[in-house]
Amino acid sequence: MIDSIKDKVKELLDTGEIKGFLGLVRKNGHIGPHLFQKGDELVDLSLGDNKIAGDSRYPLNKYLMNIAKAYPEETFGVLIRGCDDRGLQALYTWNQLNPKKVVAVGITCPQELADACECLKPFPEDITAGECAKAGEQKSVAAVDALVLSERFSYWMDEFVKCIKCYGCSNVCPMCFCNECSLKCDDLVKSGELPPEIPVFHHTRAMHMVGRCVDCGLCEEACPSGIPLRTLYKKVGSIMEDKFDFKTGMIRGQRSPLNKIDSAEGKK
């Protein structure tokens, strides 16, 4: 799979279609994000699999936004999986990236990763390399939903109390792009107070994930306290699906119901 990705990226760089390719590199014994600007660098390209499949994924879309803001006229390539593709589509609808300036190079996730992520679509819409895995079985939300209300409440409170307020969930999130963050608003979340007030802190973030979360799971991977954030945001996503028939980033060009206020579509 990696060779066809290298060939594709080399072609994009050689023809000048893209100024650079934001992917992953294996360097100094570690896997990390890298902007490939020359074909010969591709020898060290990585797809983010270190010990197990997909254990070294990074929010490349987030870094792409930083680069694109500084160089809005240039076109960049980016390595995407299914979740990153959903992220890209959502970011386009929120005008955070210009689809004309992004060339996505898509890879699929293996079944073991799709299952671990309980991913609904473990492949991007346009696939450069790889075979499509089946959607992962949805278990985590159902397991928590099966608890009676008081137990469910205790479950979440016991998880939230572990928070060390590192803001990692928000810092790593490819969909956290607001200039003003509610989690840093003193009226909602008192600065300097540790642990943060629960469940307000986590609910504030969960509310802001409505119609935004693309279920990449990077927040949960970044959480030093192991709070099952992905389960929380999966629940948020399932409510959006039930009530609005909306799944973030799944349908190209489809805007979130919360992103339609000013549009003709929203006024209807």
Binding site: I31, P33, N66, C166, E221, A222, C223
Partner: peptide, 27 residues
């Protein structure tokens, strides 16, 4: 990883393959 754009550090990216912090950081 320090994210450096044109000589200016603009972001911090916790290293996922580091055995010390495994992609996590404190504030």
């Amino acid at each position: 990883f320090l994210e450096v754009l044109d000589g200016k550090a603009i972001g911090t990216i916790p290293c996922k393959t580091s055995p010390v912090n495994e992609g996590k950081l404190c504030i």
